[in-house]
């Protein structure tokens, strides 16, 4: 296959390729006291992703550039970062969809402790997730599967899509100023169980989220919904949990 690609006329490649300027927010805790911007120039094809640009820098220019990535197609949630001021997955953002007449700014997601370059400490994020009891709780011990209608299954479908990338939580202005706030992702994962007809612990979770750091901190800015790479209606899910808290049941 690569042979076939190589046989493509060089002229076609020359037309397709373009140069983009990447401004990367660097931070090496062993050297820097403050993060700093560093400029790189990359040769890109329109179908290339921001992740490809980062790889080109790391692999051909500066091996010390540090970021997380794994699946490279938007399902593992490793590479959430701030691209031109918006939280996105680097592997799901195509260069052609950005305005490359200007530099592309890439920095770590906000609100979580910065470790190095584009890498943040994810532990506080997962700690909030664990607090909402994100697992099915049911006393029934059926011999086969529990029955669930297609409608009941559809009720919580949207929030099952979460990949825990933290794009939503780290886009939330409330979370930036108050790290104690559970944040959208934890609420999304609570929603996934609160509205699952098989679960029996909704009240417990609603109680947890009725806390002063719970759903009521949400200011409905919709940043989270805009940031979600899986298209989850995050703000709506939070609103549904708020309504359930008021009702005292799903």
């Amino acid at each position: 296959m690569s042979t076939v690609l190589e046989e493509r006329p060089a002229a076609a490649d020359a037309i397709q390729k373009f140069t983009a300027t990447m401004m990367i927010r660097r931070f090496d805790p062993d050297v820097d006291t403050e993060p700093r911007w560093q400029e790189f120039s990359v040769e890109m094809l329109p179908t290339d992703r921001v992740l490809d640009a980062l790889h080109q820098i790391k692999w051909e220019q500066d091996g010390s550039l540090t970021f997380r990535r794994s699946c490279a197609h938007g399902v593992c949630g490793s590479d959430a970062m701030r691209i031109n001021g918006r939280n996105r997955l680097a592997c799901k953002t195509l260069m052609k969809d950005l305005d490359i007449s200007k530099p592309v700014y890439v920095e770590a997601i906000k609100g979580l402790p910065l470790e190095k370059d584009l890498v943040v400490d994810m532990e506080p994020f997962f700690a909030s997730y664990r607090e909402v009891q994100p697992f099915l709780q049911s006393s029934s011990k059926p011999e086969k599967e529990r029955l669930q209608s297609a409608e009941q299954r559809a009720r919580f479908d949207d929030t099952t899509k979460c990949i825990l990338c933290a794009a939503c939580t780290s886009s939330c202005p409330v979370f930036w100023t108050d790290g104690q706030y559970f944040g959208p992702a934890a609420i999304v994962n609570a929603h996934r169980f609160i509205f699952d007809s098989r679960d029996e612990a909704s009240e417990v979770r609603l109680d947890i989220l009725n806390d002063k750091e719970g759903v009521w901190r949400c200011r409905t800015t919709f940043n989270c919904t805009e940031a979600c790479p899986r298209g989850i209606q995050v703000t709506q899910a939070i609103a549904e949990v708020k309504a359930a808290v008021l009702r005292g049941r799903p």
């Binding site: 697992f135 099915l136 011990k141 599967e145 029955l147 669930q148 209608s149 297609a150 299954r153």
Partner: peptide
């Protein structure tokens, strides 16, 4: 399923 996996369902509610 018992652990919580949300399988798609048949009209009868089975997996």
């Amino acid at each position: 399923e018992n652990m919580g996996l949300p399988f798609n369902r048949t009209p009868e509610g089975k997996i």
